[in-house]
Design a protein around this nucleic acid. Structure first.
Lengths: 217, 217
DNA sequence: GCGAGACGGATTGTATGCCATACATATCGG
DNA sequence: CCGATATGTATGGCATACAATCCGTCTCGC
């Protein structure tokens, strides 16, 4: 009987906290990340901070300026548009595969999640919406049977989190959004992969249309 | 006038050499990567090796076993299938965007690259085929205007390099392959994004059908 | 007054040594 | 033959040291 690993390695904890700080907006894009300061902030050694930063660097959340150090990567309008294009394709693929492969249990779980999401939109609790949307996608990816889509989207989405939060904070698009998600669910329930693909792609494209103009006013 | 940086950081050189060794098959899947051994092999410090390994870990090329260290990640049949699904979508997207957005110069460059690729296939030089295919995709991605597709595919493709090399070593599929690529080119030249999408997706799907059976005999 | 160059602080890049801990294996006693 | 213990190996983590580089500032000479 294997006992639970109590403590994750320090470097991964550091990486997670840094990732949360960046995606949560506490570190602004363009801000310098000075190793020594991070050591003081988290009370760990420089080696651990550096290894964590190499991880974030590989994820694209921070970029390295030679001999100057790391700065929180700045999202250009083109990057954001590219990310939405990729998201559209991969989420559409996942939805299509879900429609073709998911078990009835997974389908029921997805439907239940959509119901909760509708309730969350009605209540207006943004944190709850974000939480349930994450759950929704976890069910979707699990049922798609594709093991690499989640990791790609997690990485790619981390870079546009601020943008999503901003766009989500205006409730104007909420009714349309939940409607699009219900359309995805309908297609999946009909076991219609092509319709599911189109519905998911449509959802992301409309989200992009709402979010991208916020980038450069 | 900025002078060329003569030396990349040691850790990136280490990461590149390790990546090349893994994708080149010199490190077999499942093989342990002992930090001290790598230090001795490359004559660098353990800190540099560790930072390089964090990078490869984020890329998924190696996986960490807690308190045991890193092993070259093993590609399951499901992983390989997932990767081909993702490749299909993203290469199809890139081709579609290229058809819609590329300049005439980029289109001419792509056509020239396809011609060289045809010659390489005719000559039977596998290394040359790989080289020109890389060039072909670089032109494709540049003309697609999407900045994140290349980085995703580079990461994802690194994991199936051995598989590609094996499948490429049998010339049986070569005529079909170059034919599919010419179909992509034709659609792009006609500025027909949807046809380009379908042609690129078809190319990857057929490559997958040829490569995946080689995984588990 | 003003530009060029020297200087110094700050920061990264790299190396080294050390210790604690976890795991695997060998060894030894019964 | 079996189980407990000892030992070796490797990672996980830390502190320190030092070179290279960059950047801002200050001074000196004109």
């Amino acid at each position: 009987m294997r006992v639970a690993q109590v403590a994750a390695p320090v470097r991964t904890q550091v990486a997670e906290r840094l990732r949360a700080a960046i995606t949560g907006g506490r570190f602004a894009p363009g801000q310098r990340l000075v190793e020594k300061d991070l050591c003081a902030l988290m009370e760990v050694s420089r080696a651990s901070v550096r290894e964590a930063l190499r991880h974030l660097e590989a994820e694209g959340l921070v970029v390295n300026v030679p001999n100057r150090g790391l700065v929180v990567s700045r999202l250009t309008a083109r990057d954001a548009a590219s990310i939405y294009e990729v998201r559209g394709m991969l989420e559409a693929l996942a939805t299509k595969l879900f429609a073709a492969r998911a078990t009835e249990e997974q389908l029921a779980a997805l439907e239940a999640s959509v119901d909760r999401l509708g309730a969350a939109y009605a209540s207006g609790n943004v944190e709850q919406i974000i939480e349930i949307k994450k759950e929704f996608y976890n069910i979707l990816f699990a049922g798609s049977g594709n093991s690499v889509i989640p990791s790609i989207l997690r990485t790619v989405n981390a870079r546009i989190t601020q943008l999503r939060r901003v766009s989500l904070s205006s409730p104007a698009r909420w009714p349309a959004s939940i409607g699009e998600i219900r359309a995805m669910l309908d297609a999946v329930k009909r076991r219609d992969p092509e319709a599911a693909f189109r519905a998911a792609l449509d959802h992301v494209q409309r989200a992009a249309e709402a979010a991208l103009p916020l980038l450069e006013p």
